[in-house]
Design a protein around this nucleic acid. Structure first.
Lengths: 140, 140
DNA sequence: CTGTGTGCAAAACGTTTGCATGCCT
DNA sequence: AGGCATGCAAACGTTTTGCACACAG
């Protein structure tokens, strides 16, 4: 569930320092279902911590991703998004406004063909649905 | 199947001009299963047409994408790839070398939950498998 | 006190754009 | 001949990096 407390624990156990900047990012991610971009996170934290830099945001997200505490989502042509929900699930993105919503993992159960299994050792999969969201449909 | 001849036909029918650069790109794409990036295509065509520019490659790919003759694949963090196979199918990418292979469309049949269908009008989906390819595994 | 983390500025990266010239039709 | 296509160079948006200073441990 990635509470900011659990992230603090994990950082401590790896001897990564707990800074107010990092803590602020943890709190933004906690239970976040919005799939924020680095820019989103930066803008949000800047409200309470105006001196923070993009560098810090990116570096913290990098660490979190490498620890497996956050998924980097490659579904939007324009930028990467981050998801603190690391359990298997999928996404649908609006082709107009790039809003991303969650899609339950259970509705999908892909099987890799034999041939591919000889060529690759798969680790995970992700389904990207593309479409138009209600807001954008009504604006058209 | 996107022979270069069929692309020439389609370009003519839309009154797009047939230039040697465009023809070269068509030929590179014809039957191409490698999921080339713009850079790959540029490097390949540069061998036979050394004065070609990135601009021309990108603009031609843009037209092809908008005509639906090529898919822009968003699976690799680092760059976009282009796929002349526009029928429903999926991909597996090596996390080490970013090589992409095809995965048959039939092996996957995702269903969107009710809730999502109220929020989105879906148009298509794509499954991204992640893993490590044989070459990279043996190098480790 | 030590070394990791921060933030600035600049670079890097893939991609896009403005514009003058070239060439397909 | 006309106008779309090309290619250069410059701009773009996102992400990364080098470096001096700051601060968590």
């Amino acid at each position: 569930m990635n509470t900011s407390e659990s992230l603090v624990e994990k950082f401590r156990s790896k001897s990564y320092k707990i800074t107010p900047q990092r803590l602020g990012i943890f709190k933004i991610l906690e239970g976040n279902l919005e799939h924020p971009s680095a820019e989103n996170i930066f803008a949000t934290i800047k409200k309470t911590y105006p001196t923070i830099s993009f560098t810090t945001v990116y570096k913290t997200l990098d660490i979190l991703e490498k620890m497996g505490e956050v998924l980097k989502i490659t579904i939007d042509d324009e930028r990467k998004h981050y998801d603190p929900n690391t359990s298997t699930h999928h996404h649908i993105i609006c082709s107009e406004c790039n809003k991303i919503s969650d899609v339950d993992g259970e509705s999908v159960n892909p099987v890799l063909p034999e041939g591919i299994l000889k060529e690759f050792t798969p680790t995970r999969y992700h389904v990207s649905f593309y479409g138009t969201c209600r807001d954008c449909l009504s604006k058209q």
